[in-house]
Simulated assay, not measured.
Amino acid sequence: MSSWETGQFIYLLVLGGALALWLFIENRDSIGTKLKQLSAWGLIFLGTIAVIGLWGDIRQTVQPRQAVFADQGRIELPMAPDGHYYVTLQLNGEPIRFVVDTGASAVVLTRQDAARAGIDAEKLAFFSEAMTANGAVKTAPVTLDMVALGPFEDRKMPAFVNAGEMDTSLLGMTYLQRFDRIEISGGQLVLER
């Protein structure tokens, strides 16, 4: 447990203790009623702690995910809570998560994602340059042997590995332009071929 979580836990214990003390003082005449109420509040308290502890797992379970409709040649990506669209592609057989970026001209991988896709970042030559919102960054051109999204498979796709720090790889226009239709509607990004 981190110090922040420990602090939250202590706060909840103090709050629970204060509620229990108030219940005993308020209902001095009826021990049975006090115990029932204390049990109910204890269950509410434990339930709250469980929800807080499991919130990340609960959110992942109920959050919509990308949907592949192979027979229709269609992929639907739900908008994430941060307002972006994320998609998981298979790069050289490895699942890599991308943020869809129509403002990026190319596919740009983080060093970590490049390594997962079998690209040795230590052997790359970072001689090209890309302009970002944070200024120029060094990049290394690479060729991805296989890129797959649902039923769509592309071979020998050009991409770049970013020399700088990035949280998520970018899925830019060199890949997106391979689709016949790109539409954003009703909180979904739809890709069709």
Score class of each variant (00 low, 15 high):
A106T: 11
M157Q: 12
G118Y: 14
E192Y: 11
P151F: 14
T61I: 11
L170T: 07
H84E: 02
S39Q: 12
Q60S: 06
T168F: 09
I96D: 01
P158Q: 13
A80V: 10
E192P: 01
A80F: 12
A80S: 05
V147T: 00
T139C: 13
Y175S: 00
E76S: 06
G135D: 10
K123F: 06
V99F: 15
A70G: 07
G16D: 04
G73A: 02
Q63C: 03
R116K: 10
R181S: 11
I31K: 07
Y11T: 09
D167C: 06
D180H: 08
K36H: 04
R193F: 08
M166F: 06
K34P: 08
A80L: 11
Q66K: 13
T88D: 08
N92W: 14
D82L: 08
F179Q: 00
G56S: 07
R111L: 05
A115S: 13
S2Y: 02
L38P: 01
I182V: 14
H84K: 02
V190L: 14
D29Q: 06
A140E: 08
K36W: 12
F45I: 04
M173V: 06
T33I: 11
E94A: 04
S105I: 12
M173Q: 11
S2E: 06
A136N: 15
I58N: 03
